[in-house]
């Protein structure tokens, strides 16, 4: 417990470094190329077009204003999955610094989460525009996106800490992470409404999939953005617990293994 408090205090002392690393990453991606910021916006929009074509037109999934529904889940999912997969390499990429300068190593994965968080904030703008254009204009419920983003960020941070540390010991973990997120994407209600999962025939499959820790977090975004209402208490509580538990687990594992990293580069 005291170790955790010390770890958090050390991280807070280096918050300026974290901001600087986030700024550096954004500068490289946004400023160096004029298209940088555009790419950040374009990527979810292109995915939206393809998924809308496939699921709304070809497979006729029957969700009205499908693009709004899709983006509501896809944006937080992108924060979580892109943070975790890019963080997996963050310690290896910064090993030169880690070998020579004593800094809490968590700043490296966490600064990646920070820069993906900025991406999410930026892409909320086109989401609002599309939602308004399709007849679901943002209302006061959207204020509840603030805690939703906090919860999603904690979840992303926990996974990022966990995976960045594990990759140091086993380099092939990153391939497993890529596969994990591909599968995870399809079992999470992002491209289809979560009622589809409740209508599953197999009770076993249904109960396994109901344990998905990402579902309540994604649902929170969908309720606010797509359904235009605050999340129900159960969803909000489950999302908060899931994010807090993931963050605590990731931080605890990272702290235990941090001093060992330098022996495995």
């Amino acid at each position: 417990m005291t170790a955790a408090v010390k770890g958090i205090a050390a991280l807070l002392r280096f918050r300026e470094l974290m901001f600087l690393l986030v700024a550096r990453d954004l500068k490289v991606r946004y400023k160096r190329s004029i298209l940088g910021m555009l790419w950040t916006l374009l990527n979810p929009l292109l995915q939206m077009l393809v998924y809308t074509l496939v699921f709304s037109r070809i497979m006729r999934i029957g969700v009205p204003q499908f693009p709004v529904f899709l983006l509501a889940g896809l944006l937080p999912w992108t924060l979580i999955s892109v943070s975790a997969t890019s963080s997996a390499l963050s310690l290896l990429n910064n090993q030169g610094l880690i070998r020579k300068i004593a800094v809490p190593q968590a700043v490296y994965p966490l600064s990646i989460v920070g820069s993906k968080l900025v991406d999410l904030a930026v892409s909320l703008v086109p989401l609002a525009v599309i939602a308004a254009a399709l007849g679901r204009p943002p209302g006061s419920a959207w204020l509840l996106l603030v805690p939703a983003v906090v919860v999603a960020t904690c979840f992303a941070a926990g996974l990022s800490l966990l995976f960045s540390s594990l990759t140091v010991f086993f380099r092939d973990v990153r391939h497993l992470i890529d596969i994990l997120f591909q599968i995870w994407f399809y079992v999470t209600p992002i491209i289809y409404p979560h009622e589809f999962l409740e209508k599953l025939g197999s009770p076993l499959l249904r109960s396994v999939l109901s344990l998905n820790p990402a579902t309540p977090i994604i649902r929170w975004f969908q309720m606010v953005v797509y359904e235009g209402r605050p999340p129900d208490l159960r969803t909000a509580a489950l999302a908060t617990i899931s994010a807090a538990a993931t963050l605590v687990l990731g931080f605890a594992v990272f702290q235990r293994l941090e001093d060992e990293h330098i022996h495995y580069f």
């Binding site: 600087l20 610094l97 800094v103």
Partner: peptide, 12 residues
């Protein structure tokens, strides 16, 4: 200079 300072725990 600022990056190095931040690595040593100094503010901007």
């Amino acid at each position: 200079v600022f990056l190095n300072g931040a690595l040593m725990g100094y503010s901007r």
